[in-house]
Design a binder for these strands. Structure first.
Lengths: 230, 230
DNA sequence: TTGGACTGTTACATTTCCGTCGCATAGGCT
DNA sequence: AGCCTATGCGACGGAAATGTAACAGTCCAA
């Protein structure tokens, strides 16, 4: 995985409008998006960004999506990356299938964005079964990303957006110690400037929220290093 | 519906003995039975056979029942098919419920065959109540897409077209949080340009409509994320 | 044509949350 | 103990997200 929670997706589509819409939706769904509008750039970006999944348009100038797919599936180091191919008409899917490019899934345009998201998640789950769309559990804490709900011993907890994201991050790797800088990256975003002490404050708020109905403090402070769950 | 009033059931169970027994009983009860022993085949058969109801074992090799269920409930064209999940122990039912896979009912092994039949019929009745329309229900809200009518505790509600579509979308996956962008996609259509704040306004109108005869607000606002039902 | 129903936008009110500061407290080292 | 640093935590101003009424435009039926 790119970083703790944010799966990286490489989006290859030559039509700017479609690419923009997709990128927007993917980002809204929590993906870190890298964009390319042609096959050559895509090949380079695969190595540079090491995406967790690739969404690839079939029709493209120069190097076509099919060709990109074929090349990637030939190299051992990129073979494992799931590829979802976009194609304009249903009949084409059969053709692409026939070409045995090795793509992992196909979506026909015009596609439902939600469906595409679902398929992307499904692929990610296959490759990395832990995260993305599954209910996270740690001791008596249960977190469902889909319904955006957190339970502790059957009681619903109320927590703010940042506390929620913070908890998601911690729960994705229970026991692992995250430095304040890492947490800023993962929860706030890579290019946001905020004081590292802000993390402390939010961890404090998260603690209070998690203990609002009683129970022990599940967050562990590692002096000089950061925070961890359990 | 299948031919001549015979409801089609897709039976997905990897244990041959159990599957055979169940299939026999289902056929005796007048169902047209299609069988699968794994999730992948099941996904294919859903499209090929268009069953009226699916009985799905939880534990299966490769693609689990949960995963099949989740995928089916994500696709609009299969979302309406009722799914009954079979699970080995009672505790698991709670777990599956927590996962919000969208299954319509749960039966614990070892189950009474009669009970399973009864539940299957109940689901069919719900989906096909002489009108052949899918009826969505959530708490005290009942929505019939066929007649375009919405009831709340036996009283008919009056709501506009957009409010109706919005409610349909939310009710198709109760509990799930939809972002404003997703709702724009699903309710308005993906190539319509409207401000995301418009969603807020319509959610507000939907709320007012749903509470026009009293009752609590069934729509949940998830700050920083979107809206959900329940 | 007129009136009603509906829609999308805007402006404003209100709530909730965020980031920072200051000080208290705890932990670790000599 | 005494000192220094890291962390906990309450408070506060302000920003951001959301609720909502009002408005103008559109469509359609009477």
């Amino acid at each position: 995985m790119g970083k703790g929670g944010q799966p990286r997706v490489l989006l290859v589509e030559d039509e700017p409008a479609q690419r923009t819409v997709l990128a927007y939706n993917l980002e809204a769904e929590g993906f870190a998006v890298t964009q390319a509008d042609n096959g050559e750039d895509a090949m380079v970006l695969v190595d540079e960004e090491e995406p967790d999944i690739i969404i690839l348009d079939w029709m493209m100038p120069k190097v076509s999506g099919i060709e990109v797919c074929r090349r990637l599936k030939m190299r051992p180091e990129t073979r494992g990356i799931p590829i979802i191919m976009l194609s304009a008409r249903a009949e084409e899917v059969d053709r692409i299938r026939g070409l045995e490019t090795g793509a992992d899934d196909y979506v026909v345009k015009p596609y439902s964005v939600l469906e595409l998201m679902a398929r992307a998640r499904a692929q990610l789950r296959r490759v990395r079964p832990s995260t993305a769309g599954v209910v996270l559990e740690h001791e008596d804490i249960r977190l469902d990303p889909e319904s955006h709900r957190v339970y502790r011993s059957e009681k619903v907890l109320k927590l703010g957006p940042t506390e929620f994201k913070l908890l998601v991050t911690l729960m994705e790797r229970p026991g692992r110690v995250f430095s304040r800088e890492q947490l800023l990256d993962l929860v706030w975003g890579r290019d946001i400037y905020v004081d590292t002490r802000t993390v402390d404050v939010h961890v404090g708020r998260l603690r209070k929220s998690l203990m609002q109905h009683g129970g022990a403090d599940p967050v562990r402070t590692v002096r000089g290093a950061g925070y961890a769950l359990g």
